[in-house]
Amino acid sequence: MAISVSQIESLREKLEVMPQVEDPDRKVSKMEAVRMMASSIRDLQSRGYSIEKIAEILGDSGLDIAPTTLKSYLTKVKGSLGKSNYRTNSKPRGQSNGASRGEVKKASEKPASAVSTKPANTKNIPTGVTPVASSSFKPKDDTDEI
């Protein structure tokens, strides 16, 4: 059964307005648990607690996790915070800082400052490269030596 584009749009809108399910008893992975507690764990670290001690506290409370795993998860959580898909600025995509809302630059267009302004006559300008006649290159024969 095929579905129309208008039906898909209607369904998408319906899905977007649905509230988040509140289920405090749902099971989460250790990684998700560390993600949810990351700020509290970092706070304990800033107060002098070692990763080993924090892992012990978590284990006593029901989250058995090795100190090395905890450290790894904290590193991943810290890295994922900076790489989230959430856009922190309100600038629309496809516009540079100088573009107004109504104008979008094409990918092939270069800003005026990036356009090269070479002089028309470059024959007498020294380039630092010694010209070599194209017929002067002679490749050597291959040898068996490596």
Rank of each mutant, 00 (worst) to 15 (best):
E145D: 14
P111G: 04
I51T: 13
R87V: 05
L81A: 13
V28I: 15
K30A: 03
G98A: 14
K27D: 04
K76C: 00
S90Y: 07
I41H: 02
V77D: 08
P19A: 07
S100F: 01
S6I: 11
D25K: 14
N121H: 10
V132H: 13
G59Q: 02
N89I: 00
S50E: 07
D23T: 08
E9W: 01
P67L: 11
E103A: 05
S4C: 04
S135W: 15
P126L: 01
S6K: 13
Q45I: 03
V115D: 03
V21A: 11
E13D: 14
K78L: 05
D23S: 14
T117H: 15
E103H: 13
N121I: 01
P119W: 07
K53S: 06
K14R: 15
A112N: 09
R26P: 00
P67A: 09
D25Q: 13
E22S: 14
I146A: 09
K53G: 00
Q95T: 05
T130N: 07
S29H: 04
M1L: 12
E9T: 11
S108T: 03
T143I: 12
I125T: 14
S134Q: 07
Q45V: 06
A114F: 04
N85D: 11
E52I: 04
F137T: 02
G98D: 08
S84C: 01
T122D: 04
G128L: 06
S135I: 02
K91V: 03
E22H: 07
A33R: 12
T69S: 15
S135C: 06
S6T: 12
Q95V: 00
